[in-house]
């Protein structure tokens, strides 16, 4: 199959199979996404960051924990591309390995949070009545706590560490998703097309799972990518306060926390992980904006 005919196969107005129709829709979305330069920049940055984290051992020959107290706080050089930190560890290496921890935490939080929020919101919205009231009050209770404080209390109760931090952030991050999914569900639950599904005799579970949830997913994905930066910052904040990743594990927030005293003399030491956080946050934000334009069901 040549490139041109594959494109035609994807863009045909009359697909012949379900598979072709689904691919065609995805391709059209991609074409639209590609036209948005900023979103593409965000996507490329995210991919680069993730690949750098995944292939960290191939991209650096040094060990992130090897100390060299004689060469501490060194400026960038041929040997240490981004310099060294307060214990003489290579910053470039720690940045790569730190990406594994930080991005890993973000992805873990999202994987935990999005399905929970979606489930709670769609069920509350569709069921209505008592179930709705109970679920939403629980959501409100979690929403009422300041995010970082609740996470701090939670981590303090467990033992500080990456997995506690992930759970703590997840615990405080799901309520907005539940609210969003519920609001979306309320606008569509009385639509004729949902009535039509009810009239086929489909069960409530099937209606929520197969007909309502898919309509909420796109706005949820957008919200998630927009929240990614917030999650990175919370994770960094926990790390900064010593409640997240524990030394010597490299994590971007912890890296800033440990070296914040050197900001005036050896400014690059805390600044470099800060730039990494900034780049990742911005990239996820741009990606989210672009996805919103493509996925918004109200478009066209």
């Amino acid at each position: 199959m040549t490139a041109l005919s594959r494109r035609e196969w994807l863009l045909t107005e009359a697909p012949e199979s379900r598979r072709q129709a689904a691919w065609g829709r995805a391709y059209r979305g991609w074409l639209q996404f590609r036209r948005n330069k900023l979103a593409m920049a965000g996507l490329v940055t995210v991919i680069v960051l993730v690949l750098a984290a995944v292939f960290a051992p191939l991209l650096t020959l040094q060990d992130p924990s090897t100390q060299d107290l004689a060469g501490r706080l060194a400026p960038p050089s041929a040997q240490h591309w981004l310099g060294t930190d307060e214990l003489g560890r290579d910053l470039y290496t720690r940045l790569l390995y730190g990406g594994r921890v930080t991005l890993g935490m973000v992805i873990a939080v999202v994987v935990l949070v999005a399905p929970v929020g979606l489930a709670v919101g769609t069920v509350a919205g569709y069921a209505g009545g008592l179930a709705d009231r109970v679920l939403m009050r629980v959501t409100d209770i979690f929403l009422a706590f300041p995010r970082l404080i609740l996470a701090l209390a939670f981590v303090a109760a467990l033992k500080p560490g990456v997995s506690s931090a992930v759970f703590a952030i997840a615990l405080t991050a799901w309520p907005p998703y539940a609210r969003l999914a519920r609001a979306e569900t309320l606008t569509i639950r009385n639509a004729d097309f949902i009535s039509a599904v009810r009239l086929t005799g489909a069960s409530a579970g099937r209606i929520v799972l197969r007909h309502i949830a898919p309509l909420c997913v796109s706005s949820l994905i957008v919200r998630v990518t927009l929240d990614m930066s917030g999650i990175i910052l919370t994770a960094a904040g926990l790390g900064f306060l010593g409640m997240g990743a524990q030394p010597p594990m490299p994590e971007w927030g912890t890296m800033i926390a440990a070296t914040r005293g050197f900001i005036l003399q050896q400014w690059w030491v805390p600044t470099i992980p800060g730039l990494a956080i900034f780049a990742a946050s911005l990239a996820f934000n741009l990606l989210g904006d672009g996805l919103r334009d493509v996925l918004d069901p109200k478009r066209g």
Binding site: R18, A21, A191, D192, F193, S195, A196, V197, L199, T200, G201, H211, P214, L215, P297
Partner: peptide, 24 residues
């Protein structure tokens, strides 16, 4: 019950609102 919906079906007024916008 499900058997009822096999016997009785409905067509709605608004053909724009009665089909799921994201389903073929």
């Amino acid at each position: 019950d499900r058997a009822f919906f096999r016997r009785v079906q409905m067509v709605f007024q608004d053909p724009y609102g009665s089909l799921h916008p994201r389903q073929t």
